[in-house]
Amino acid sequence: MFEKWRNRNDAKVFHPFWVIVQKEVADHVHSWRFLILVGLLMLTCIGSLYTAMTTIRTAVPQDDSLNSFLFLKLFTVSDGTLPPFITFIGFLGPLLGIGMGFDAINAERNKGTLSRLISQPIYRDYVLNAKFTAALLVISVLLFGLGLLVMGLGLLAIGIPPSPEEFWRMIFFLLLSIVYIAFWLNLSILCSVRFKQAATSALSSIAVWIFFSVFFSLIIRLVANIAAPTEVATEETAVAYQQFIQNLSRLSPSQLFSDATTTMLTPSVRSLGPLTMEQIYGAIPSPLPLGQSLLLVWPQVTGLLAATLLCFALSYYLFMRQEIRSRS
């Protein structure tokens, strides 16, 4: 039976797209870079799990422990020495994405393999798509592996199984992280199409990442100070101002990601915008159901996907009409 299956497999002709994907995945898995990134993420998991363990006792609410989503706290609580898992992923995810993509096209170009690859009977976009798909596959497997590992270890350590809702919230959190990393992956592929040197490409992607994670909030604060309404402003202007600042900060993909993941992992988050007293008045202080949380983060997810698509479209546009010489 095995023999039969093997024979059929031998005669099977893969679509060229999947041939490229296979090769790229193999390349990633065998590369040093990948080992380093995996090591980094492993440390993250262990570190954040450790801090969560030490603080989770204090996080157990006194009133009703059934509805507290204690399991999800594994990913969000911290004792202050190390950031929780969710922050770690928000911080290291971009690095993972950039690391997997910054030399996707230009390395092939510099090695002289791109013109050989392109002169095979494949469409040009196969190269781009296959590289993206391969990196995304590897990232997805990695993230799901790590996420489930943390869940498993946490289960062993605290002994409380996750409820189905908690489980689904976890899955959605991981999916969100993949979308977020896919954005950075695409950005770095765009840079690798645009810049001939791998170092330039890596640096420019990292520059964008640092800009959004460090300087963007600073600039927002600056704008906020300038645009702040006077003391005698009405309630409407105050709300409008808050919303304006929040929308500005949502131009940053990392803000979108942290909004979305916080909502997914902290069911008590009811709104991502400003709430007036009237809105809160009379509300029952209970966690949101999963569907409502998903609805709440829908705009964020759409935003992230749009940014990803934008990068993709740009690299497509640049790559499709680029002249490919042997080593330039």
């Binding site: 090695k111 002289g112 050989r116 002169s119 095979q120 009977p121 042997s326 080593r327």
Partner: peptide, 20 residues
């Protein structure tokens, strides 16, 4: 280009291979 590439082999100058 696809039909051409199916029938034509091209050896660029200073051809590169996947070194690993």
């Amino acid at each position: 280009p696809l039909s051409v590439k199916q029938r034509v082999g091209y050896l660029p100058d200073d051809v590169g291979f996947y070194e690993e």
